[in-house]
Design a protein around this nucleic acid. Structure first.
Lengths: 205, 205, 205, 205
DNA sequence: AATGAATGAGCATTCATTCAT
DNA sequence: TATGAATGAATGCTCATTCAT
């Protein structure tokens, strides 16, 4: 009747955290070939495991992409909150956020590619993306701006939510340009360039 | 931009410009299901032609996406240049560009979805995208900023290319948010919000 | 992005009725390897067409199995009705039905295998099978028996529906035995053996 | 029949006879989802053991199906022989066999489903099935009929082997109908209906 | 004996593209 | 030009089976 056989698998390599390994390999593979052109087999091969093993840790190829985002976003937000907790001045806070944003992504090109390119390829994902951690991130910026307005250092003829999107959009564009560039310049310093304009546009006087 | 046209009038069908019809249908279909999930057959059906006919006008599904971009970008740039030709003041110029950017995309949601979402789904395309009309567009902004610096109305401690990306990024984010939003607000007015900050950040004193 | 190519298909053989060809090949393949172990590719290869072509005529592998049954059953019932229409005597009618049943299946071993073996492999199918043409067939037998009872040639202490199942079961077992047998004896003559017992059990006195 | 038994008492679990438990669970699972759609994991879960443990008692999923048949058939034959040993009259013997056949399967619907539906899904299995216990069962019927012929109570113009298949086929059809029926009527009484016809057809005068 | 994580072969189905008409 | 039937390459996922513990 049914006749499936599995060959004699030789070396069972010991991979301590397979879930993390899969995520790492997937980021690499997605970055180099794009999500739709990446085969689950590519990811498994890169991670040094069997194809089927991927499905012990993730329900589908889609879920892998989601997990990459979830995990990175969670780390980013945690780190962000920690960093700005000690900064009282709203302008300095925004600057720190911008620096973090760019240094974080600038430190992991594969991750940056996935964030800037692959995560954008579907309306469906973009919407979930917006709904999830992303809006939490935007909110950190927004509330910082609102505080600055309250304390009088920022103009209050601006809607904080719009202003936060403007900052985010500017930073995002820096990352996208960096990702697509053939030149290999450091991304982090661009934060200052952005803030030079944005802060001047934001502050009173 | 390729602009092959079908004979003045078909023998059977009364579709004067099939190429344009295909592009229009493709924009609609890509917007609603995403590029990868759209079938060439869907596009043909929407355009009211046979599947094979698509290949008389386009070499591949990919080429359709490219053409959507090419055509829209060419129109946009032509219109942009015409509009700003008569405006002398750099600040007013930038404002006009921002308004055009948002009102153009705000007038055609399907097109906007394709621009903001579908065109981002592949590094390869993004790179071609950058190389092509897009950089021409960015350059209009950049040179306007450079002129403003020369005439002394804009700060000259900013790199024009970076400043142009910041403006573009901010506008782009407005569009993306609008596209993904479930609410149906008008996009064009956001141009003012962006310029309120950006210009203040840009001008000297 | 997507990159599918089709090789240069050389000879496009002309197969007049592809649907019928697929059904014929499927019957052969199912008979020799069993439904679950048959690949759609096997069927396509046997029919001399491409894999994908199968799906232009059938929605799924399941539907092929259903169609084999539908088509054969329809033919069988049509032929059965025609044959018995001219026979007045209920006993002779039943005999004719039995002969037809066995000579039909005895003439096409592959079809017989599919009927006796493959169609039984799933409760789901069996139920649809019962509900469909099969019950129509049983009903021809049942009503013939009922007529015989009315005219007094058959005992009326028997429920016609049960008696019809007994006859069907006996014939069915003859077919199954024949199908599974390694010996290659003619099936049709078994009809007499069955009727020798069944009719004697059925007639009055 | 293989009847390996697990040690009198397990160390951890309190499943005295795991082999039997697996067989019981498998019968349930096969009956509800079909052999091909049942996963070994489903069976293990139902039996409350680990997937791998199944393979300590059975070499393959196929072997489980075989074992279900072997075990049930062996029990059935043993019981059948015991029951008829005391019955001298061939007609009464056959009646007792028919009653047993239907009451046995009528008492365990899952088992009946496996017998009537799942065991039929493969020619290969059907052939082994015929070769094995099944032919032994048929032989009990056949020899009883032969004895009846010898003692003159049964017509001797019938081949006993064919007559035995007719009876078996009739009974088998009763079971199949009962299994597929949505109504929940008792199966055992159908034995009388069958024998009313069969015996009349069989006896002399 | 028991476990259950790991394996990897296997396959139905889709769909971009072609080409005979 | 236009058609649409035919092609066939491509792949995510399942699950029987193994084996280190």
């Amino acid at each position: 009747m049914m006749t499936r056989r599995s060959g004699a698998a030789g070396t069972r390599t010991i991979i301590p955290d397979k879930r993390a390994a899969i995520l790492r390999s997937a980021t690499k593979v997605f970055a180099s070939k794009g999500f739709f052109n990446s085969k689950v087999a590519d990811i498994a091969a890169d991670a040094g495991i069997a194809d089927g093993t991927v499905y012990l840790y993730f329900k589908s190829k889609d879920e892998i992409l989601h997990s990459i985002f979830d995990r990175a976003m969670a780390e980013f937000i945690t780190e962000g909150r920690r960093e700005i907790a000690e900064i009282a001045d709203p302008a300095q806070r925004l600057t720190r956020i911008a620096e973090l944003h760019l240094s974080r992504l600038g430190a992991d090109r594969d991750m940056a590619i996935v964030f800037q390119v692959e995560l954008r390829g579907s309306t469906k994902f973009m919407q979930e993306f917006s709904a999830a951690g992303f809006s939490e991130y935007l909110d950190i910026i927004r509330s910082t701006i609102a505080e600055g307005q309250k304390s009088g250092v920022f103009r209050d003829d601006l809607k904080p939510i719009v202003a936060s999107k403007i900052l985010y959009g500017a930073l995002d564009e820096m990352v996208t340009n960096w990702v697509l560039s053939v030149k290999d310049y450091p991304l982090a310093p661009m934060a200052d360039e952005v803030m030079k304009i944005f802060l001047r546009g934001l502050v009173t006087k």
